[in-house]
Design a protein around this nucleic acid. Structure first.
Lengths: 127, 127
DNA sequence: GCTTATTGTATAATGTCTGTGTACATTATA
DNA sequence: TATAATGTACACAGACATTATACAATAAGC
């Protein structure tokens, strides 16, 4: 399970974990039928408390990605095609994208490099 | 001052304000020599306490964007070319970009639309 | 079947963060 | 010199994040 989080980030750990896992779920790295590691094991890997991992798992379960059951673990589900996306949430995601891009710019990363990064993301998504 | 924040977001208001303003600073909408609105006025616009805006201003001042002085206000500085970017921070920005893109995918937004969005960001940055 | 170990769940405790209230310091302007 | 406009400092209440601890469910082994 290749996962990394930044403990000193302003984003809470449980959300970083959920976000990272969601990426793996969407891009197919964690196909339906897979079992995620037990909360205690992943927690050890990430140096957090297992309840923090459990919280991340619960977020993904509520989104329909996982089926959680005691003793068996966290099973990846075949998720239905999403319904029509929430426009507000979508708009906020769009804005966050743009802000992060500009924040990289402010960091001194060249427009060229950012463009390259964005293109590589596009590629990953389209495939 | 065209600014909007989402009070119900998980990102704190002061950070949303700082991020949005930084975007305007980087893209030239707020050129050096400009005066930002007083904290109390912007706070009214955004329906937050003025200390919340002050906190955002202070973040940008520490980043070298603003010179804050009592009674005169928040002056936009000509910021020196950024030093070599912090690689850890940069990597985390990259990861957040990718995660948000995949989160849009999970929301049911098509790869095509996301690609379009990313391309429009690239355009904005390159110009 | 029964026991046990493994797994997620529930709840409380604790520290940190966010936003606000209020008083203050500074300084341009009249 | 007085006044008003502006940012600053600091304390407080409430929310939030993480951890600690006890519990419930259930697959596996016997």
């Amino acid at each position: 399970m290749l996962l990394r989080i930044q403990l000193d980030s302003h984003l809470p750990a449980y959300r970083q974990i959920a976000d990272s896992l969601r990426t793996l779920l969407v891009d197919g790295s964690l196909p339906p039928g897979s079992l995620l590691p037990p909360v205690r094991q992943l927690a050890l890997d990430l140096s957090v408390h297992f309840n923090t991992v459990a919280q991340a798992y619960r977020i993904l379960a509520e989104e329909g990605w996982l089926d959680l059951r005691r003793r068996r673990g966290a099973l990846v589900l075949k998720r239905d095609a999403p319904k029509s996306p929430d426009p507000d949430f979508t708009a906020s995601l769009r804005r966050r994208l743009r802000e992060i891009a500009w924040e990289m710019r402010a960091q001194g990363i060249s427009a060229k490099e950012i463009a390259h990064e964005l293109r590589s993301i596009v590629k990953g998504i389209e495939s």
